[in-house]
């Protein structure tokens, strides 16, 4: 073929599209992040450490990370169950459920925040019966975890679902023919296959929980050192015009999120390589 002998034809538009992309990214994404880096740098290491090891800041990190871990654990269980049901079973309302899974991504966080607060407040639909049992959710760390779990619910479902769909029946048949029971097949054959995707989904959910703001602040109570999340403390420092503190906490939160997401990317890349290797 003549075409194959000539050089690969170059499509038009490289200069303008690349130029526009780099210009826009520099202006909208890079420049503000550089501003954060410079403003954090201005503070100096000693003062930076002083700020982020202050008791109120450390408490906000502890509250945020503890609630995010609890929310991730809740999502790990519920997410796996929902993904399993959607892939393996047929039941009435399945398509509706599949569409509803993404609701937490589509619903604005402030709306989710006031809705969850109304549900779990002491006089709410869930809050009243729970209060009768002596369980308090709204305005406690548990409420923070519930709000985080709501906004990050889709991650585990949506990362596990495609991998679960790709599990080939032959592997299960082989195990079944050797007398494995349902639970053994799940534990020994299916779970190891979906494990990297499952962990990646949990990590994505955890990263989202660390940065969540809108859904949390309504239900949290926002008591310093008790139910105050790091994102809220950044906001409070800004309102007090304490820009160095806001910059220091914000850069710490940003770096933590990037590290967690790099980990998630690495796990996901591993899980993709894994699924390519097993034909």
């Amino acid at each position: 073929m003549a075409g194959a002998l000539t050089a690969r034809r170059v499509l038009p538009g490289f200069g303008p599209t690349m130029g526009l992309t780099l210009f826009y990214l520099s202006l909208v994404v890079l420049l503000p992040i550089v501003a954060l880096a410079l403003k954090t740098g201005e503070i100096g290491l000693a003062r930076y450490l002083d700020i982020i090891t202050g008791p109120r800041v450390l408490a906000s990190f502890r509250v945020t990370v503890t609630a995010a871990l609890l929310a991730t654990a809740i999502n790990a269980g519920i997410g796996l169950l929902l993904a399993w049901n959607l892939v393996r079973y047929d039941f009435p309302g399945k398509r509706l459920l599949d569409a509803l899974i993404d609701l937490p991504f589509a619903l604005p966080t402030a709306v989710a925040g006031i809705a969850l607060t109304a549900l779990f407040a002491p006089n709410g639909w869930f809050g009243a019966p729970l209060a009768a049992m002596g369980i308090k959710i709204a305005y406690t760390p548990l409420g923070i975890a519930i709000a985080m779990a709501f906004t990050s619910l889709p991650f585990v479902v949506r990362t596990v679902q495609p991998v679960l769909e790709d599990v080939r029946p032959e592997v299960e048949e082989a195990a079944a023919s050797r007398g494995a029971r349902a639970w053994q097949i799940f534990r020994k054959v299916i779970f190891p296959t979906i494990l990297p995707a499952f962990i990646a989904g949990c990590t994505l959910a955890f990263a989202r929980c660390l940065g969540e703001f809108g859904a949390v602040i309504f239900i949290a109570g926002n008591l310093p050192e008790q139910t105050e999340i790091a994102a809220l403390l950044i906001f409070i420092r800004l309102e007090e015009y304490d820009y160095p503190a806001a910059a220091a906490i914000a850069s710490t939160v940003l770096v933590a999120a990037l590290v967690v997401l790099l980990l998630a990317n690495w796990l996901q890349a591993r899980s993709q390589r894994h699924s390519e290797k097993t034909p």
């Binding site: 994404v29 660390l210 703001f213 950044i234 015009y241 940003l254 999120a257």
Partner: peptide
Amino acid sequence: LIALIELPFSVSPIVAGVIYILLYGANGL
């Protein structure tokens, strides 16, 4: 470049607001 395009997904909404204040706010860059 692709990582840079997707970067805003990893930034907490509050942090997104803060970096703009630190750039264009009265005491910003």
